[in-house]
Design a protein around this nucleic acid. Structure first.
Lengths: 156, 156
DNA sequence: CAAAATACCATGATATACCATATTCATATA
DNA sequence: TATATGAATATGGTATATCATGGTATTTTG
């Protein structure tokens, strides 16, 4: 039995005329093992779709309920936006989900969808936008290596 | 039951046309005992592949989830880079993993892969690049021996 | 009843799991 | 010290299973 459930890797799949895309097999495994569902919404900060398990959204909701003061008012507003936008996506027997027009348009996705793992979350990009975004981030990291320390210090 | 699981030693194995390499037996033992998986990604700072257990990445993901807000920009960028690039590698009954073209290219690996233990993590180098890197490190240590102290004290 | 959304089937490409052989390494023995 | 012996590991090859994707049937909904 696995202990960890992380969305990893970067995988490009085709989107057909109906908006159908294969959810990467690894991602499906996580959904099955946690007996949850995938939830997607428009990213608030980038031209991409953001996704996670419904389980994670439930946790977020619980956190807000239990300790309101822990979250700033701004964050509370943002969370509202996400919950309002989020939609549940279940995949069929062949492993595909059907993305909505609204989401595809926001992410400017036409032919291909690029799934990018983010640990507990993942994103879906158009090839062009992801290429730009990855370049931007790599450039940024080159200039400020200290950020990486977070990782290095994580030993025990 | 063992308490510490460190990736040690330097081992060279062949990479075949499909990118298959034997994971050093010692490394396999660690993976089995922790019932986890190996995760590899391109080093952000050197021409080599970096690897660790999925367990370690899981800790990182947990830290990110807890220590910062859901919407921090830096965290967002960093998680994209690390989790988006990282890929899970499970070994078959003979102990081999199949490295991807992307990773091999980044590390300039063709014939042989050099596994270098780094404690909680390890690296995979081409023979040429590792020779250079090792020489560089040894030279650096010669010039500033005090640094070594820091390292020695770090073990427990 | 028409249109759209959803579920199922078929196929080729790709990746994975397994078997067989060679090599290395450690131990024992002369 | 050199050599024999056996076990563990590494490596080459091949069969098998999985996955992505195009197409079609079936159900839902207005």
């Amino acid at each position: 039995m696995r202990k960890s459930f992380l969305f990893l890797d970067t995988i490009t799949n085709k989107v057909d005329a109906k908006g159908r895309v294969s959810l990467p097999a690894d991602y499906r495994t996580i959904v099955k093992e946690l007996s949850t569902e995938i939830v997607c919404y428009r990213s608030l900060t980038a031209p991409c779709i953001e996704g996670c398990t419904e389980e994670l959204l439930e946790k977020l909701a619980a956190d807000i309920e239990n300790s309101t003061d822990f979250f700033s008012e701004d964050q509370d507003d943002l969370t509202n936006l996400i919950f309002g936008d989020a939609k549940r996506f279940s995949f069929d027997s062949t492993g595909r989900i059907v993305l909505t027009e609204k989401l595809l348009k926001h992410a400017e996705i036409t032919e291909n969808a690029v799934f990018v793992g983010k640990g507990k979350k993942f994103q879906i990009w158009s090839e062009e936008n992801w290429a730009k975004e990855e370049a931007r981030i790599r450039e940024k990291v080159k200039l400020s290596r200290p950020c990486l320390r977070i990782k290095e210090n994580n030993n025990d």
